[in-house]
Every structure is written in C-alpha cells, then in structure tokens.
C-alpha cells in the first residue's frame, strides 16, 4: 500500500473538494428555497472561470509583476468573477425561472437544462471549443512550490519525492474558507439571511410575514452565483485551464455532493463536497495502485453510482434528518 500517494491524494482531494463544496452550496441554496435543481449552475461556474481568465488577461499582469500586483489582481479577478456570475445567475432566474414559479416543477427544470446548453454555446462563441489556457499569473516556482519542504518539520517526509503541498493548494483553501465563513455569517446573522431561511421553511408563511419572496429568491441566486464565480476563478488557476464543457462534470459532482450532504443543508453541502473531492482524487490517483484494472475512467461511474444510491436509499442525504433546518 502506497501511503505517500494516499496522503498526496488526500491533499488534492481536499483542494478539489472545497471547490466542489463552493459549487454545491449554489445548488443547495437554490434548491432549499425554490426546490429547483438549477441545472445551469455548472455552466455559470464554467463561465466564471472564463471570465476570470479574460479579466486577468486584460489586466496584463503576469508572473513577472510584483507580488503585490499579482495578489491584487487575483483578488480583483475573484471579486469580478463573483459579481459576474452572481448577476448572470440572478438574470437567468429573472428571465426564465421566475415566470415558471407556479408551473409544475418540471417546467423550470427543463428551462434550466435549456440554459445549460445555451451557456455552453456562449462559452464556445466566446473562447472557442478548445481548452482555455489560464494566464500565467502565478510564478512557476510558486505553483510548483512545496511549502512543507521548506520547513522540513517532518524529518524530510514532505520531500518532493513524497508528499507535495503546493502553494496552489493553499490558495484554494485560503479562498474557500473565508467564503464559507462569510456565507454562513450571511445566512445566519443577517436579516436577508433570516428571510431566506424562513422562505425555505415555508414560503407561504414567510410571504404572510411580510417577506418579499421574489427578492429573497433573487438573493439566493445571487449568493449561489457568487460562490460559483469564486469556484470558477479558483478552478481556472488550480487546473491552469478551463473548457466549455467543464461545467457538466463539476456541476454533476457538486450536485451529487449536495444530495449526499442532504440537499438544502449548507453544512451537508460542504461535507458532501469534501467527500466527493476525496473520492474523485482517490479514484483517479490512488485506486489504480490498489485495484488491478482500475483507472480514472471509472471515476464518473463511481460518483454517479453514489448519486443514484443515495437518492434511492437515503434521499435525505447524510445530514438531511439530523439537521431539519434547511436554507
């Protein structure tokens, strides 16, 4: 058993897992309130990656610039892509889903599927069907820099030969955690967050209490979109490329994460995201060394099987029952 590889994959799994968690939150927020599987959410995330790429490209900042400029540009790109995706997501809601609030549930779902295809094509018109290469903004030494090697705290165990803990892994976590904290603060400690929770519990009652339902739903789409935008920017830098069809896989993995954690449950979405990230990394990198004949090509099958099995046997997800509060 290759423990070194195992731990390496744990690190990759946590990084991709937090990315998935960000996207999963968007699904879960919207589902909690309007009970719609926002099929186009993965594509919003993908366009976030594209937008961040263009944004960094336009600023012209590259790895040659000063650290301050690089960090500043990255932060700006993060904010810009969050705003972009938030607006995009809310716009889709405004244009299509809102008109279908009183229609059977299948109507907005079908519209969402339609939007998912529209957005994929928009990405193709914008950047072409080939993978978009991320601007070289992080210094090469930085992306390949093994932080733990520097300190040598574990007697050289974290050597390049062994486990690498890259600066980009740190970047993902450094962006994700504040966002998660900010978001839970928003949902649990602001007026509009309270309104969201109330609407999720009982839309009729919330409306009777004077909550503006449409505005609350809009905020859910804005917040979900912003998180997808952040995830898009991070994914672009982390994978150093993006493609028009990446939203499909990430979106479905994230949806699986949301279902696994118990759809509508914020905490569940984060745990589900991390779990799916770990499973993804293990299936891609570690399983082939333990299971003969295993390969990364089975990852999709594994994750979809999890989705199907959870939906059939435990539709409330891991945390669906323990935490009745949903958002």
């Amino acid at each position: 058993m290759n423990w070194t590889l195992f731990f390496q994959m744990v690190i990759i799994g946590i990084a991709t897992g937090s990315l998935i968690a960000l996207i999963a939150l968007g699904y879960t927020l919207v589902y909690g309130i309007v009970e719609l599987i926002n099929f186009a959410h993965g594509e919003v995330f993908m366009l976030g990656a594209f937008f961040a790429g263009s944004f960094i490209g336009v600023t012209g900042v590259t790895s040659e610039n000063s650290t301050l400029q690089i960090v500043g540009t990255l932060l700006l790109a993060l904010v810009a892509s969050m705003v972009f995706c938030a607006v995009l997501n809310a716009l889709i809601d405004r244009v299509a889903y809102r008109r279908l609030r009183n229609a059977p549930r299948l109507a907005p779902l079908i519209a969402a599927i339609g939007f998912s295809f529209i957005l994929q094509n928009v990405a193709i018109y914008w950047k072409g069907p080939n993978p978009l290469i991320a601007p070289k903004i992080l210094p090469k030494e930085f992306t390949q820099y093994n932080i733990l090697k520097r300190w040598d705290i574990f007697g050289g165990y974290f050597d390049d030969k062994f486990i690498r803990f890259m600066a980009k892994d740190v970047m993902v976590i450094a962006i994700t955690i504040p966002l998660l904290i900010g978001m839970s603060w928003f949902v649990y400690h602001t007026r509009i967050g309270t309104a969201m929770r109330a609407t999720a519990q009982d839309r009729e009652a919330a409306a009777l209490m004077g909550i503006d339902i449409n505005r609350t739903i809009q905020v859910a789409f804005l917040v979900g979109g912003a998180l997808a935008g952040a995830a898009g920017m991070v994914a672009l830098i982390y994978n150093s490329s993006a493609r028009f069809n990446m939203g499909f896989q990430y979106g479905l993995f994230a949806f699986t994460a949301a279902v696994l954690g118990g759809i509508g449950n914020l905490f569940g979405a984060v745990v589900g995201g991390l779990l799916i990230g770990l499973i993804w990394a293990m299936s891609d990198g570690w399983m082939p060394t333990v299971v003969p004949g295993w390969g990364a090509q089975w990852t999709n099958t594994v994750i979809f099987s999890i989705l199907v099995l959870v939906l059939i046997f435990r539709p409330a997800g891991l945390f669906g029952k323990a935490t009745t509060e949903k958002v």
Partner: peptide, 9 residues
C-alpha cells in the same frame, strides 16, 4: 437549448 427555454416560457 433556446427552444427548450422559450417553449417553457
């Protein structure tokens, strides 16, 4: 995709 959206709306 556009057809799906427009028909629904």
């Amino acid at each position: 995709g556009l057809a799906l959206v427009l028909v629904m709306i």
